[in-house]
Write a protein that binds this DNA or RNA. Structure first.
Length: 107
DNA sequence: CAGATGACTTATG
DNA sequence: ACATAAGCCATCT
């Protein structure tokens, strides 16, 4: 595939270990989409409900739960806390520590 | 085909 | 530190 598609993004998101999070830019970069962070977000937005894709583990570069609004309330934060991720003020505590870099972990 | 849109990122004032 | 602007790519209208 020359261009990325939903499944490419989903595949990476599915690989995110429990208790870890990543950002759109990292996924985009892993897919060779240097500045295509928006595409990742767009793919997430197209993510059908009931999918086995942990979209709640994907946040923006600052560790803020930008997608919590789309999850519909506190559902996203609840899921993250259930995995051991601390969330304060819609922002992930120690984001740099729980950050999961696909380029480093998957190589 | 051209313009608009988006769960983003980085740089600049 | 907050606000604004520009850059990025796939899809939609």
């Amino acid at each position: 595939m020359d261009k990325i598609s939903f499944e490419d993004v989903y595949a990476v998101v599915r690989l995110i270990p429990k208790g870890r999070v990543t950002n759109y830019g990292a996924i985009a970069k892993y897919l060779s989409l240097k500045g295509g962070a928006r595409l990742v977000g767009w793919a997430m937005g197209a993510l059908p409900a009931g999918s086995d894709v942990p979209a709640h583990r994907v946040v923006n570069s600052t560790g803020v739960l930008t997608a919590k609004n789309q999850f519909g309330g506190t559902r996203m934060q609840n899921l993250l806390e259930a995995e051991g991720i601390e969330v304060k003020n819609d922002k992930i505590v120690g984001f740099r520590k729980v950050f999961w870099n696909p380029e480093e972990e998957l190589m």
